[in-house]
Amino acid sequence: MNIFRLAGDLSHLAAIIILLLKIWKTRSCAGISGKSQILFALVFTTRYLDLLTSFISLYNTCMKIIYIGCAYATVHLIYMKFKATYDGNHDTFRIEFLIVPVGGLSFLVNHDFSPLEILWTFSIYLESVAILPQLFLISKTGEAETITTHYLFCLGVYRALYLFNWIWRFYFEGFFDMIAIVAGVVQTILYCDFFYLYVTKGEKVAIPS
């Protein structure tokens, strides 16, 4: 555990909680892509199956349970509790176009051809593109609420901090996981366009389609 890794995890946690609180407080999920949230729930579920097979640390176990719990709570709020406010007409990204190629790739490029390892690889690849439905929704509606941009900003910070974490781990521990690093770089690049707009437009972000 290094400072970048810890800060990255906390930024990730902040993003998840900001989104949950936004939906809960405003009683609305307008402007939020339910499809991205389904993908994140799928990411956490397939990645954290190792909760059942291996113990790493109390921190690790608690964070995994919180991430999974919050992901399903968010999906529940969007598709059940506040369904009436869900922007389904604009949330039209076809997630099968992500899930199918990512599923195929995880079978082809992985560390070990075993069920848990393939699911872990699937989750890593899927996470790298899971935000696309959300960015697509913003480009369709033309603008995002300030709180939604804070959510995206925290997610982007989390990805960037994980890159520093990997540089740290490579330098000081000689550790690197090429699958996680390549997917992480792709994911961070997807946030760069958003970051630029966040900084230059003073949080009032509209992603041009």
Binding site: R5, D9, H12, R47, D50, I56, S57, N60, M63, K64, Y67, H111, D112, E117, W120, Y162, N165, E173, G174, F175, F176, D177, M178, I179, A180
Partner: peptide, 10 residues
């Protein structure tokens, strides 16, 4: 651990 199969990150 230097084993990529040991997934200790979140």
């Amino acid at each position: 651990s230097n084993d990529p199969l040991h997934h200790d990150e979140l």
